[in-house]
């Protein structure tokens, strides 16, 4: 059992929690993820590790409530325990001295970008970050990203805060200004990662994206997380999660991520009910 030692709401349906997992806290590197299972009936939920505290023996996760399992996780509080936590999984980010690294985070994607930005900074890079959200209230980790980066730009789709528009517009500005970018790290919703990759492709700027396909075991056994990279099938759990954005078949990823829309909707409607902001599980049949 893994105790939740801290829980903070970051934005509407987005929260941050610290979870006891001393060995993982010691071993994990930027870019890696864990898989949680909340209880005996639970599904396996892959989540990127945002940070860790070796002394406390905790890892930090940031989660957006998108379905039944993440809503149930959202209802757990400090002092509650998670049944299973396994990791660190996936390959760590390739950290190197690239000169200038532009870190781009879209929505909840800013969470996995933060540890990479930190590691890139430590490796001697000049780190310039762009974070964006649909609207101001959904923006997360602005303070942390500002502390980590040499320069931070913020965008909102509706113009409620920062630059009115998309992260890719700011990225394009940097390129147009002649900034010598050594590497772009872009993490967020699939359309955003595709847009970032399309922005840098004409200039051959190395671009890393972190993919979030449907997974089951996450240890290189089942093959659920397969994606097409440069026309070849790869497995995100052991070959990724990070890939060259210019090689990723994003269209396929979008379709595969929709595999269980019908089932997810059914689970939400039939097995949970809401009171105010809370999501409760119906009693089992």
């Amino acid at each position: 059992m893994h105790e939740i030692t801290e829980k903070i709401d970051l934005a509407h349906t987005v929260f941050q929690m610290k979870v006891k997992a001393p060995l993982i806290a010691k071993k994990r590197k930027a870019g890696q993820f864990v898989i949680l299972r909340l209880n005996e009936h639970g599904e396996r939920i892959p989540l990127t590790i945002v940070d860790s505290d070796e002394k406390e023996g905790t890892i930090t996760l940031i989660v957006q409530e998108v379905g039944r399992s993440t809503e149930m996780l959202g209802d757990m509080q400090k002092g509650d325990s998670i049944l299973d936590v396994v990791g660190p999984l996936g390959k760590p980010t390739h950290i190197d001295d690239f000169g200038i690294v532009v870190c781009v985070g879209g929505g909840i994607g800013t969470a996995p970008v933060l540890p990479i930005a930190k590691a890139m900074k430590q490796a001697g890079n000049k780190v310039i970050s762009i974070i964006g959200a649909r609207t101001k209230s959904l923006l997360i980790l602005e303070k942390e990203m500002r502390e980590t980066s040499d320069e931070l730009r913020v965008t909102t789709d509706d113009g409620s805060y920062g630059h009115h528009g998309f992260v890719t517009q700011v990225l394009q500005e940097f390129i147009d200004e002649g900034m010598k970018i050594g590497c772009v790290v872009g993490i967020g919703p699939v359309p955003m990662m595709r847009a970032v990759s399309n922005t840098t492709r004409p200039y051959n700027i190395p671009t890393v994206v972190s993919l979030n396909p449907i997974m089951v075991d996450g240890t290189g056994m089942c093959g659920a997380c397969r994606v097409t990279i440069a026309k070849k099938t790869q497995f995100v759990c052991v070959d990724g999660p990070e890939f060259n954005g210019h090689d990723v078949d994003f269209d396929e990823l979008v379709l595969r991520n929709r595999s269980y829309l019908k089932e997810e909707k059914m689970a939400m409607e039939e097995f949970t009910y809401h009171e105010g902001d809370k999501c409760y599980e119906r009693s089992k049949p």
Partner: peptide
């Protein structure tokens, strides 16, 4: 794995779905 380990045949009582 979905059916045996995760008990998807008992979805949605168990949370892992299967088509």
């Amino acid at each position: 794995t979905r059916v045996n380990l995760m008990k998807a045949y008992q979805f949605p009582e168990f949370e892992t779905p299967i088509i």
